[in-house]
Amino acid sequence: MNGLLIDYEYCTNCQSCEVACKEEHKIPVGQWGIRVLTDGPWECSDGKFNLYYIPFPTRLCDLCAERTAKGKQPSCVHHCLAGCMQYGSIEDLAKELAEKPNQVLFVPEPYSY
């Protein structure tokens, strides 16, 4: 089973994942295969700001089955400007997850067209 490991500490909201996905799968405006969600900015009690972005795979995400069959990365992962996304088996990704905080592992159910 494969998934996406997102290091949301480093997601800069460039939205390359959203657009790379839309271009790859010809998804019209108003629909997304992956979408960057935003929390913040809001001020914490210590005066610092909370501002996180997380690319969230939608029900249209098939983890780029066609691309990965050819040995390519999913289009979102390949183009991410911050390099904060990884694709792989959940076993490998779980090991990566254990090594660094502020990450999240998604295992989207492949959408049947």
Partner: peptide
């Protein structure tokens, strides 16, 4: 250089 990069 960073994780997730394509290599093919």
């Amino acid at each position: 250089l960073f994780k997730g990069q394509g290599t093919r």
